[in-house]
Design a protein around this nucleic acid. Sequence first.
DNA 1: AAGTGGTCTAGACCACACA
DNA 2: GTGTGGTCTAGACCACTTG
Lengths: 258, 258
Amino acid sequence: MIPDLERAGPRPIYQQIAHWMRHRITSGLWPEHYKLPSETDLAVELGVSRGTARKAIAELVDEGMLVQIHGRGTFVSSKHLEQPLAERLVTFSEDLISKRIPFETHVLEQKIIHPPREVASLLAVAAADEVLYLKRVRDVGGIALILLENYVVADRCPGIQDIDFTRHRLFEALEDVYGLNLDWAQRTFEAQAADPATASVLDIAVGSPVMYMEQLLYLQSGTPIELSNLWLRGDRFRLSATVKRQGTARSIRGTVPG
Amino acid sequence: MIPDLERAGPRPIYQQIAHWMRHRITSGLWPEHYKLPSETDLAVELGVSRGTARKAIAELVDEGMLVQIHGRGTFVSSKHLEQPLAERLVTFSEDLISKRIPFETHVLEQKIIHPPREVASLLAVAAADEVLYLKRVRDVGGIALILLENYVVADRCPGIQDIDFTRHRLFEALEDVYGLNLDWAQRTFEAQAADPATASVLDIAVGSPVMYMEQLLYLQSGTPIELSNLWLRGDRFRLSATVKRQGTARSIRGTVPG
DNA sequence: AAGTGGTCTAGACCACACA
DNA sequence: GTGTGGTCTAGACCACTTG
């Protein structure tokens, strides 16, 4: 039950607790609608003050994984499979994985290049620097759904040109292999007509509507690390968002209709 | 300097403080980049504990109005004019207004109808109930940019069929005329090919890419109040979002490129 | 070294839900 | 009434920034 809390480490205790709770939820140990121990009990069990336990809980409430009801208790959100991913920087592959939708990835190109001028400027590197260029297709249910192009600043990821991106995801490599702290991204979406090259990869007619997404990914330090262009079949992809009139926006996510 | 804090009232002190700070920022008393007193000083001045002052500050940081930098202090965000709109349920017209982009609205249809089956089910009303049907075009810079269809539950808004929606916005009517508490909305976006009817209104070729948006708007009470369908010219519209890897999503907004 | 925000504690009282 | 989360206090120590 009790996690190992490093009281001397650099990570705040409340974040360690939040991480531990996140794991208990995603692993199914705390299933949907599970009622957590009261804040007081939890604090005692963890050996921390109630305020610290509360702060950890607040993080997960913010992410939509927990719901608190005054006078009743704290519960695992019934939407924890959708919500937490919806409110974070999640890749489409991670979204598909969380929904247990099987997919396949094919690598069309993978090489180290000098970035085109526009890419260099967005990634804040020199034209003489090296970036990984990756071009992939992602198949869902046997049909090509997404065409992806990625440009990754190479000096942060030595050897990345040799990783097998048929079997590994890009974010996985950046976070787990290179230990990068991916922090946030700016995404823009646009309805476009498929050009011949895109149409042929996605197996649709030229001029068919596609959702185009551009993403600029930043590290915690504020440095841009990756730029990507995605084209998604318009007839198979939807973007959905929950917005509040007052306060903070809640979520944005892409979905593949049933 | 010091606000009147009702210590006996139902509103928590930290919210009263947050409200007071919000006002000082929007009124210009605390201009951009203004450095607030330290948390300790602020707490003493307000006669509260540091924790309470901190919680008030955290609200405004969350809304993007304040920025805290460890070791330096708390500052009024330079983007406080843009951010709050970006993080809320904002209509495209409100977004245009905030950016001082002039636009015009033309009403194509406005009548009370019995809702189609699908609309009735989404709005949770009976097929025999009445809804306002509104069909409009919004011109920006002389070109038709958005085609809008709205279905509004009519029994909450008596007389709405007589409002001049050329001069008034729909949200304005719902909030100011009928006093409705618009709380949140679910929006989904899709890249579509313009059908002949849409193409003719937006003055584009049939089959051109358009961004389609469906919105279901809810009151604070949880009741759906309005359903809308929007078609935006794909070549003139972009959707952009800032997403965080951990924690909450920050913002989502639609933009009309330069 | 001084000042700032970030974290944590150990209490307290209140408002709400439920039996 | 009992248990829960919501708020608030008055301290403490640490990590970061700046002079």
